[in-house]
Design a protein around this nucleic acid. Structure first.
Lengths: 232, 232
DNA sequence: CCCGATCCTTGATCTGGATCAACGTCCGGG
DNA sequence: CCCGGACGTTGATCCAGATCAAGGATCGGG
């Protein structure tokens, strides 16, 4: 593991306040591995053997039932996944696969639970991390049930713009097929949604997006911090 | 607070392992109150001032945006809500109202955070409780996105039956209007869904339901522990 | 005992989004 | 340099579920 990667991991909310020695123990037990795109990392229903942390690349969490498949979320660098299952020593509710080539830190579940039992600061950090995960799911649920597809796309574009500094110019973090799945729509409908947003100043050229009339777009998307703000 | 109520609260996952004195402190700071039906307890966007625990009755968590309103979940006796917001000292993402006359234990957020800081066993219990909440949301998301309305109703009926001892006879825990909202459909469509399930042995007479052909219903609902099992 | 309100059901219609199909564009490999 | 496949767009059609409308059933209150 490179020194800068180690520093990045150490700086995550989850590990920030952890005891030095305990953190070193965890890292000693962990594996860092690089995976090519589209490799399945976990399968829903399997026992949770590792806590995963994305250090580079991007991982898709998804779920399937009766032949359908849905995308639950995309995990970006600095993000963790499967924390809840690891702590409960339970079975995965979601599957995971790399979206692109990714570097993933894998910490054995046993080690995580051990640190959770023994390190009080760590167990408190876990609380905050889990609270964030939970609230993220609540927001996703609201987004999905309260807004139409076009509104979801509009709100998402505004969020991406905000996260890129609000310049009105950014490029999509995923390909459109993935973005469609993430927004809970088909690729066809995403395409149509982009077309619908053209009159609202949304110019999409491949992955590059320019928002030339943010005010109009906001009037349509009605962004709400209780749905769209990561930090809230 | 009655002695049996106190014992019930003490027995909850959240408080079970807590230090005796600390638990007494928490209870001393708490208010127990009885509310009539349809009283709004919290408003999304407001600061989280209390952790709520339902001891009797039933509370609906809901969210609104742009004039629509959706039901997020129903909290039954023994259930807690707003834990994540209290711990993060953040704003509510959901509103809450009593569905029926309810007894609610309200613990000041300050006291909860204090206990969380000082009582290691409590902070670990919180982790497990939050993990359950998170996984509950994941399951709800899967249920909603992967199944049709009829399938959701079928799976839900099977779950109610299971929770009532699997006798094939039970009564619905909520009125149909509420059940519809909980399943993410309109009352009209819930009514039609019940009609659709009649050939599968579902006899609904008011709140009373008889499942006369569980196997047929299961073939339709394709229940899956990773969606339908509370305990998983 | 009747009235009005609430809840549920049923029917008719509408619509957002899914599905099916075809086509253009880009890109990597032979 | 050309071919084949992945990806995205657009059009046509279909369907689940929402909406609109109306009619019973039940029940509490005057």
């Amino acid at each position: 593991m490179r020194a800068d990667e180690l520093a990045n991991v150490r700086g995550l909310q989850l590990f920030r306040d952890m005891d030095d020695a305990r953190f070193a123990d965890l890292m000693r037990a962990a594996y860092l591995q690089t995976f090519p795109p589209h490799v399945q990392l976990i399968q829903e229903g399997d026992r949770a053997d590792f806590l995963f942390i994305v250090t580079e690349g991007c991982v898709e969490l998804f779920a399937a039932w009766n032949g359908h498949e849905i995308t639950m979320m995309m995990v970006e660098p600095g993000g963790t996944f499967i924390l809840a299952a690891v702590l409960k020593d339970a079975v995965h509710l979601m599957s995971a696969r790399t979206a692109v080539k990714s570097r993933i830190l894998m910490i054995p579940a046993e080690a995580v639970r051990g640190a959770f039992e023994r390190d009080d600061a760590f167990s408190r950090s876990i609380v905050l991390e889990l609270a964030d995960c939970y609230r993220g799911m609540v927001k996703a649920q609201k987004d999905l049930k309260l807004r139409s597809g076009v509104e979801r796309l509009a709100a998402r574009l505004l969020r991406y713009d905000r996260e890129h500094g609000g310049t009105g110019t950014f490029s999509l973090p995923h390909d459109k097929r993935t973005l469609a799945a993430l927004l809970g729509m088909t690729p066809e409908n995403l395409s149509r949604a982009f077309a619908t947003l053209r009159p609202y100043g949304v110019e999409a050229d491949g992955p590059n997006v320019v928002l030339s009339s943010v005010a109009d777009l906001q009037r349509l998307a009605k962004p709400n911090p209780l749905i769209d703000d990561k930090a809230v």
